[in-house]
Design a protein around this nucleic acid. Structure first.
Lengths: 348, 348
DNA sequence: CGGGACATTGAACCTAGTCAACGTCGGTGG
DNA sequence: CCACCGACGTTGACTAGGTTCAATGTCCCG
């Protein structure tokens, strides 16, 4: 196979040791002594997998991961952190940022080789799975003629998995492109000065993410976070731009999406403004039901609060009332809608 | 000149009398005995000017005016109401709907001929004025190459004046096309079930109106009303559609407009949700200042209330507070911004 | 099965809405 | 030109709905 591995590690002993092992195992290895160097190497000569220390001079492991995720050609490379500390927080932070695995130093040869091999294999497996998932898009996208080009771009592009609670992009980031959500659920939120969150959107499979920022060439105006494990496909801005100029149907399609989005936002605006908490709550539940296509769903009170722009305590109270009235059932964070009609007709 | 006049009047004596006078004066006259017939005639053979009774069987004068305003080819025809009652309310209602003049029965020959002549002359004069106003668009629109086509359509199309408080379109109306605001100011509002209004947008010269409804092929989602006397140009949906398919630049331009609109709506959403009344008020004032480009503007308390989604009484109170604090000055419905910086930095 | 995160409930407080009365402005008709 | 009317703006008193703070309960993951 002779796959390319990049190791980024400031400790000379560890680095040399790893290089030796990997070369013996038949990999082609390149190495860097700090994060900055590592990122440059990765861009110049794209590796199949990256091993990276967290604590490093110049640029730490998180920074490396962040920078790599900014470029489409390096975004999908399997990424394994090497770390001395097995601390929970660090581990979680890394995984949330999109790392694929952790190796706690000291690790022995078999651990190292096993991790790399399993990652590469998993990636291959995922690739196959994505293709299948992408085939489904055929029926969705290729209906109209010119949209076939968009479809082609999507299929050729690798999909990227995001884990639950992982942030896809932050408010203020420069838009790198459009995300197509292949599976899972994503929320977008805006932060008020005092830290309270407002959910501006909730997305399920086949929805586009970050349309407006990408198309207006501005920074993202909200933060997108995965509500559950997701599969996303990034369509780079440049390709999208070309597509828009070549195929009016594609542009027309996006115009429709945007226009509908505005209508929804205005509707939401009216609700925010004049509806009672009960009505806002009912609308939020209905929105969730509509897009999960089931009568039961799991959602944190905090997320519900952000959707309806009310306090979490008030969410609890209102849901308890609804349960009393036989409108819904709830158990923990799972909510089941019992009386859709009465919820829809909720008086203000 | 031999201009075509259409008279719609159910009283046989009056109708015959008017026809006689007008034919003597050299006009070509067609006539209808009720509103329905009149509208059909107007569509079949577009007249230069229309005289129309208000109280009629089948379809009354208001209905005629409404139906004519739905079609681009009949929208700009001068319209004179004939009415027995000189009541205020009726007069105002007619003028708001877009009638150009009133004749109170009984009227003598000179009154009739004078009104028709002056209307036709005025229309000619306005046409000349519009062209000038439209020339200004050259610099705005024709910068990019393909947009020249859009510009051409705008220039070829007649602009139509709207009077203060006149409704341009109603929520629920099927979108006939896109309006370009040439001069004046327009607000768009949504109505809550309980009748409270929320202002979803405020537009000044060179803004487009009803983009999203037109482009998504849906009904208007809000009601547009003239805040002052306006000049609007209607770009019919069909022409717009052609343009979008032919010129990617035009589509691109609208995509940008829509995307920006979404960003603004989301920003507003966040405000609605978590800002105090003081802050909402400040933001509303700043929005007004930004688009009037002056520090002083006239606005009804009710409109301010609709902008910030608060009660009119609260608007009064808050403005009084602001005045006390030296942030603004106010006299009647005129507000002057004194301390822009402090208003911008208003704490929540 | 223990601990921490998440959910619920209670009580006090406070903001902004409502109702009502009064003041002010501008336009219309005598 | 003035007086009057109606629409619009202001102010006060009261109230309801929702937030906040705080304590307690429950679920779920390791």
């Amino acid at each position: 196979m002779n796959e390319k591995v990049l190791i980024i590690e400031d400790n000379d002993d560890i680095r040399e040791n790893v290089i030796e092992i990997l070369e013996l195992a038949g990999y082609t290895v390149s190495s860097a002594k700090n994060g900055k160097e590592g990122v440059e190497l990765a861009f110049k000569d794209v590796p199949a997998i990256i091993l990276c220390d967290i604590m490093m001079p110049e640029l730490d492991g998180y920074g490396v991961l962040y920078l790599l995720s900014k470029r489409p050609e390096t975004i999908a490379i399997p990424f394994i952190f090497l770390t001395a500390k097995a601390e929970h927080f660090d581990r979680r932070k890394g995984m949330e940022m999109g790392a694929d695995d952790y190796l706690t130093k000291p690790f022995d040869d078999m651990e190292l080789l096993g991790a790399i091999e399993s990652r590469l294999k998993k990636k291959e497996g995922q690739q196959a799975f994505y293709s299948k998932s992408l085939d489904r898009l055929d029926t969705l996208v290729a209906k109209r003629d010119g949209l076939a080009a968009l479809h082609k771009i999507i299929v050729e592009r690798k999909a990227r998995p995001f884990k639950k609670n992982q942030v896809i992009y932050y408010e203020g980031d420069k838009g790198t492109g459009l995300y197509l959500l292949l599976s899972g659920k994503v929320k977008t939120i805006k932060l008020a000065e005092d830290g309270r969150e407002l959910m501006t959107g909730i997305y399920a499979a086949d929805d586009y993410l970050g349309i407006n920022s990408t198309l207006s060439n501005e920074e993202y105006t909200d933060t997108a976070t995965a509500l559950e494990d997701c599969l996303l496909c990034l369509i780079p801005k440049e390709q999208l731009e070309q597509l828009l100029n070549l195929y009016p149907e594609v542009a027309r399609e996006f115009i429709k999406l945007l226009a509908n989005d505005i209508r929804e936002k205005e509707e939401q605006l009216l609700q925010m403004a004049y509806h009672s908490v009960r009505k806002k709550m009912a609308e939020a539940l209905l929105r969730l039901q509509r897009q999960s296509e089931m009568d039961a769903f799991k959602i944190a009170r905090e997320d519900l609060a952000a959707m309806a722009a009310i306090a979490t305590e008030t969410v609890s109270r209102t849901l308890s009332d609804f349960k009393e009235e036989g409108l819904i059932d709830k158990k923990g964070s799972t909510i089941t809608i019992l009386d859709l009609a009465r919820l829809t007709k909720m008086k203000n």
